[in-house]
């Protein structure tokens, strides 16, 4: 009897911690989304409005633009992180001198605080004395400096690149651990069968990486979807609203207007969207795996 309950006892502190720190605030946010509550307008009071906030949200064109922007932001950034991360992981999995040093150095963007990284990139992108313009001008690719953060498209791309730069090391580390887990016998057998490098990559490496790939990309999608610091420091969602993703919009509602009801509605919508997407994504890959 004692043995049966012992494991539960051990995980109890963690469960209590998670309930208090994660579940309770989430439930509170769900509850707030059903109320009209604007903290800076205390005279309007707190009123239960049911699904009204969600109706307002769905009717709001800004929400749909923001959602579309967030989707493009997430897909482009995660795609970049995955492709570059996988390529570098495959390279770092080869045997060469000082491999350990490279593997350590590659972690720098990941361990740099995001705000610091965004401030550095702001300088890199600066139109007048930024390093990017300096390099491009030295290479003769441009004649005059480009104001990267001063135009809608370039600001969006610049923010994506910054986000990729931070996220790539995580992908490398995860993919590298996945690559190291692939039995060498499989490669040897492929070699005996006369498979070339491309065939080996697509028939052995990538299929074997699938579980790792699934976890890494889903985590990356959630983090990128909710990425706030980089955009806020680089552009605050501008120019105009070119980089205003859902999380920026949520922040502005909740901590700019202090409209807790609408802010929570945005947060809950993001939560539900990500939850549905994650389940769908997981299922899609798992099913394929079974086939």
């Amino acid at each position: 009897m004692r043995k049966r309950y012992l494991p539960y006892l051990f995980i109890m502190p963690a469960v209590i911690f998670m309930l208090l720190i994660v579940a309770y605030p989430i439930l509170l946010t769900f509850r707030s989304s059903l109320f009209h509550e604007v903290l800076i307008r205390p005279w309007e009071g707190v009123e239960f409005v049911g699904m009204d906030n969600f109706v307002t949200l769905i009717k709001n064109q800004e929400f749909w633009s923001s959602l579309q922007r967030t989707a493009i932001w997430t897909v482009s950034s995660v795609l970049g992180k995955t492709l570059i991360g996988l390529s570098i992981a495959i390279l770092l999995n080869q045997k060469f001198k000082f491999r350990g040093i490279y593997r350590t150095l590659i972690l720098i963007p990941w361990v740099t605080p995001q705000v610091v990284s965004a401030i550095i990139w702001r300088w890199v992108y600066n139109g007048e004395y930024g390093m990017l313009n300096y390099v491009l001008m030295r290479l003769g690719l441009i004649n005059t400096g480009i104001s990267w953060l001063g135009h809608k498209t370039t600001a969006f791309i610049a923010a994506v690149i910054n986000d990729m730069w931070i996220g790539i090391p995580f992908m490398i580390v995860v993919f590298l651990s996945g690559l190291q887990g692939i039995p060498n016998e499989l490669y040897e057998a492929a070699k005996v069968d006369g498979a070339n490098r491309i065939q080996t990559l697509f028939k052995i490496t990538l299929p074997q990486l699938k579980p790792v790939f699934l976890t890494a990309t889903i985590l990356s999608i959630i983090w990128t979807f909710n990425s706030f610091n980089i955009i806020w420091v680089l552009t605050k969602g501008g120019p105009v609203n070119a980089t205003e993703t859902l999380v920026i919009k949520t922040y502005k509602e909740a901590f700019g207007k202090f409209d807790i009801g609408m802010g929570s509605t945005y947060a809950v919508t993001t939560f539900i969207l990500l939850m549905i997407f994650s389940l769908f994504y997981w299922r899609m890959f798992s099913e394929k795996d079974e086939i």
Binding site: G127, G150, G238
Partner: peptide, 9 residues
């Protein structure tokens, strides 16, 4: 007049 760098930045 183009007498200022991109103000948006």
């Amino acid at each position: 007049h183009k007498v200022t760098p991109n103000p948006v930045e």
